[in-house]
Design a protein around this nucleic acid. Structure first.
Length: 418
RNA sequence: GUGGGUAUGGCGCAGUUGGUUAGCGCGCCAGGUUGUGGCCCUGGAGGCCGACGGUUCGAGUCCGUUUACCCACCCCA
C-alpha cells in the first residue's frame, strides 16, 4: 500500500467540520474588522523567504521544502504566509493604495520538521496582515481580532504573552548589552547558544535548556533598552489592551524566531495541548516591506495554527457544529418504488429539504437501521399500495409517532416537513 | 538531525515459558415468520500478526536490520 507522506494529514469527514467551523468563524470576525481575504501561490521563489523570513532563521536554514523546477529556478513551498502577502502588496502596487490595507488568509504551509503533537510538515494557518499604520492602536486591534477568534471558538486557558523587541534604532544597543552579558557565561551555555552568541544572541532568551534558562533569567531585558519611540509605542499598546479588556502578561523572554519582527511581538499560549502550545503568534514588522523591495511601509500581523486550535478546542470541550442530518429518509420496496423514491427525493432536495433514499437495495429492516444511523428525523416507506394512492405513513424517528401524508407533490410534502 | 515508545482484521486491544484451525470489544453485513429503527439474541465477512533477514523440527511470541506512526528535544503556528 502506498501511504501518505510523513507529516502530512488526511482530514477525514469526521474532522472536516472542525476545520470548516474555524474557517467560518475566522472569516466572519475578519469581515467585522474590515479585513478582506487574499490568496497567494503555494510556492514562491526561494529568495522571497530567505530575504523575507531571514537567512539565519531555522525555518530558512533547515526547514524549507526547496526544489528546482524544470528550468532550474529554485522554488520553495511556503513555510509561512507573511512574505507572500508582502510580495503581492508590492507587486500589485498596493503599497501606494488606500491605507490601511487589511488582509487575511487561510492557507496551507510546509516545513520539513519532525512531526509531533500540534506539528506537521504540511499545516494550516489562519492569519492577518495590516499595512500602512504605525499606530500602536493598530497593534491593539490586531491582537483584539486574534483574541476574538480564539474566544469565539470556545478556547479556554489561553494567555496572551506580550513583549517589545525594539526597532533598528534601539535593538543594536540591546543586542550589544545582551552579548556582553552572555559572553560572561560562555562556557556554561549549551552548544547551540554558544553559536547564537555570534549570530543572534536574542534567541538565547528562549532557550529551553535549564542552564541557559537560568542564565537568561538575569539577562538584560529588551524593555530596558527601548528607544523613546518604541517605549511610547509599547506603553500606549498596553493601555489600549487594558481599555479593550484584553488581559496580557509581559514576557521579557518572548523572542520570535522570524527575523522580520520589530517592536511588538505576542503569542497566545494554551496549556494542555502538548509541547507546541503557541496557538497564535504575531507582531509588528515595520521593515519587511522595504526589505522586500517596497516602500517604507509599517505593518503588523499574526498567524494561528488551525490544528492547534482544534486541539485547544477539544481540550476546552468546545462544541463543534456538525453537518445537517436528513429531514427525511425514503425507504422504497421494489424496483417501481425505488424509481419513485429517487424522483421524490430529488424534488424534496429542490425544495431545500435534506432528503435521502436507499441506494443499496436493502431490505426494509436494514433501511430502517440505516435511517437511524444517519440520524434521519423522519422516514417514509414506499410500497406498492402507497405508489397507487400517493399517500403514505410518515414516521418520526425520535418517538415512533406516525401520520399519513400525501407525497404526490414533492413541494407540498416539503412544506409539511418544514 | 537526536532521544524514548508503539507496530496483531475498519477502530481499540488480548495473545501464557516459541507448538495444533490467532482471540475479544466496537464497527460492518445478514437474519430473529410475512412492510418498520434504536435494546437484546443468532449467524457471517474481514488478518500472509509493519517489512526484510536470521535462530529453530516449529515464531505473532527469540535475535538483527529497516520502515511507519506517536511523544519529546530543536524550532515554530
Amino acid at each position: 500500500m502506498i501511504q501518505k507522506m510523513r507529516g502530512t494529514l488526511d482530514i477525514l469527514p469526521e474532522q472536516t467540520p472542525a476545520f470548516a467551523y474555524i474557517e467560518k468563524t475566522a472569516r466572519e470576525i475578519c469581515e467585522r474588522y474590515g479585513y478582506r481575504e487574499i490568496r497567494t501561490p503555494t510556492f514562491e521563489a526561494t529568495e522571497l523567504f530567505s530575504r523575507g523570513v531571514g537567512d539565519t532563521t531555522d525555518v530558512v536554514q533547515k526547514e524549507m521544502y526547496t526544489f528546482p523546477d524544470k528550468e532550474g529556478r529554485s522554488l520553495t513551498l511556503r513555510p509561512e504566509g507573511t512574505a507572500s502577502v508582502v510580495r503581492a502588496m508590492i507587486e500589485h502596487g498596493r503599497c501606494g493604495g488606500v491605507m490601511p490595507e487589511k488582509l487575511f488568509y487561510l492557507i496551507n504551509c510546509f516545513r520539513y520538521e519532525a512531526p509531533q503533537a500540534g506539528r506537521s510538515r504540511e499545516f494550516f494557518q489562519f492569519g492577518t496582515e495590516t499595512f500602512g499604520s504605525p499606530s500602536p492602536y493598530t497593534d491593539a486591534t490586531v491582537i483584539a481580532l486574534a483574541n476574538d477568534v480564539i474566544r469565539a471558538l470556545g478556547i479556554r486557558d489561553v494567555s496572551l504573552h506580550l513583549n517589545s523587541i525594539g526597532c533598528p534604532a534601539c535593538r543594536p544597543n540591546y543586542r550589544k548589552a545582551l552579548a556582553e552579558y552572555f559572553s560572561r557565561y560562555k562556557s556554561e551555555l549549551c552548544e547551540t547558544c554558544r553559536g547564537r552568541l555570534e549570530t543572534n544572541p536574542m534567541r538565547i532568551l528562549d532557550c529551553k535548556s535549564p542552564i541557559c534558562g537560568k542564565i537568561a533569567a538575569q539577562a538584560p531585558k529588551t524593555l530596558d533598552y527601548l528607544c523613546d519611540d518604541c517605549r511610547g509605542h509599547f506603553e500606549t499598546l498596553k493601555v489600549s489592551l487594558s481599555d479593550l479588556g484584553i488581559p496580557f502578561e509581559i514576557d521579557t523572554h518572548l523572542v520570535r524566531g522570524l527575523d522580520y519582527y520589530t517592536k511588538t511581538v505576542f503569542e497566545f499560549v494554551c496549556g494542555g495541548i502538548g509541547a507546541q502550545s503557541t496557538v497564535c503568534g504575531g507582531g509588528r514588522y515595520d521593515g519587511l516591506v522595504r526589505q522586500l523591495g517596497g516602500p517604507d511601509l509599517p505593518a503588523a500581523g499574526f498567524a494561528m495554527g488551525i490544528t492547534r486550535l482544534i486541539l485547544a478546542m477539544e481540550q476546552a470541550g468546545a462544541e463543534i457544529p456538525q453537518p445537517k442530518t436528513p429531514v427525511l429518509y425514503i425507504a422504497p420496496l421494489g424496483e417501481e418504488a425505488a424509481k419513485k423514491a429517487i424522483a421524490l427525493t430529488h424534488g424534496l432536495r429542490a425544495a431545500g429539504i435534506v432528503a435521502e433514499c436507499d441506494l443499496m437495495g436493502r431490505s426494509l429492516k436494514s433501511q430502517m437501521k440505516y435511517a437511524d444511523k444517519i440520524g434521519a428525523a423522519h422516514t417514509l416507506i414506499l410500497g406498492s399500495s402507497e405508489l397507487e394512492s400517493g399517500r403514505g405513513v410518515l414516521r418520526r424517528m425520535a418517538d415512533g409517532e406516525q401520520r399519513e401524508v400525501d407525497f404526490s407533490d414533492a413541494a407540498a410534502l416539503a412544506k409539511v416537513l418544514c
